[in-house]
Computed example of a mutant assay.
Amino acid sequence: MTAAEKTELALIPLAGVAAWLFGYHLPEKVGIGSLLLAASVLLLLQGLIRDLWLLYKRRQLPQDGTGRKVLCMCVESTVGVTGVVAGLILVGAMADMTLRVSPTLFSILAVTVLVIGFAIKDFVFEWRPFRLRRDKDHLNLIFSWKK
């Protein structure tokens, strides 16, 4: 496990505490679509911050300038974008059921999303052949629909 991964794991409980403290300023009733949208954006934000860190660290290393062109997509991004779309559909369709949400639930939701994001960060969906595979360094992949 790298130092960056250890740091990310250490920050997850702190994010839960921050969500709990900030949760007192959020409404008590929130729609399911809004919660799904917020959780998905949090997942995408986690991946963005991780990718920006990796890009920053990569600039300090010598480059060979080659990227692999593959038919795949990051699982974390796929789940996040799917959640955003589903959340927007629920909110837009006014089919959004309302829940009572406490600061503790906001905290649990934040920690759960961040732990799931950490767990799936190294996986990609490959289209041909269709499979789920682990690629620790998929930042160097060039996404393509066609080979």
Rank of each mutant, 00 (worst) to 15 (best):
115 V>M: 11
73 M>R: 05
71 L>G: 05
103 P>N: 07
99 L>N: 11
75 V>Y: 04
112 T>V: 13
78 T>H: 04
105 L>H: 10
94 M>P: 01
113 V>N: 02
142 I>D: 10
83 G>D: 06
122 D>H: 15
70 V>A: 15
140 N>M: 12
77 S>T: 13
80 G>I: 14
119 A>V: 14
99 L>P: 08
132 L>H: 01
70 V>K: 11
115 V>K: 09
118 F>M: 01
90 L>G: 08
112 T>H: 09
113 V>C: 01
127 W>G: 02
140 N>D: 13
106 F>A: 02
100 R>K: 11
82 T>H: 05
132 L>N: 01
79 V>H: 00
76 E>C: 13
80 G>V: 10
134 R>P: 06
109 L>K: 04
65 G>M: 09
101 V>Y: 03
67 G>F: 15
115 V>Y: 04
97 M>W: 15
111 V>L: 00
144 S>R: 08
107 S>W: 06
64 D>H: 13
129 P>D: 02
68 R>A: 10
114 L>G: 02
91 V>F: 00
107 S>K: 08
69 K>L: 06
120 I>Y: 09
64 D>A: 12
84 V>C: 01
143 F>D: 04
91 V>E: 00
80 G>M: 10
95 A>Y: 11
103 P>V: 05
109 L>S: 01
73 M>N: 05
77 S>M: 12
87 G>F: 05
141 L>P: 00
143 F>T: 03
90 L>T: 08
65 G>R: 12
74 C>M: 14
96 D>Y: 08
107 S>N: 09
81 V>K: 03
123 F>M: 06
83 G>Y: 02
140 N>V: 14
122 D>A: 14
139 L>P: 00
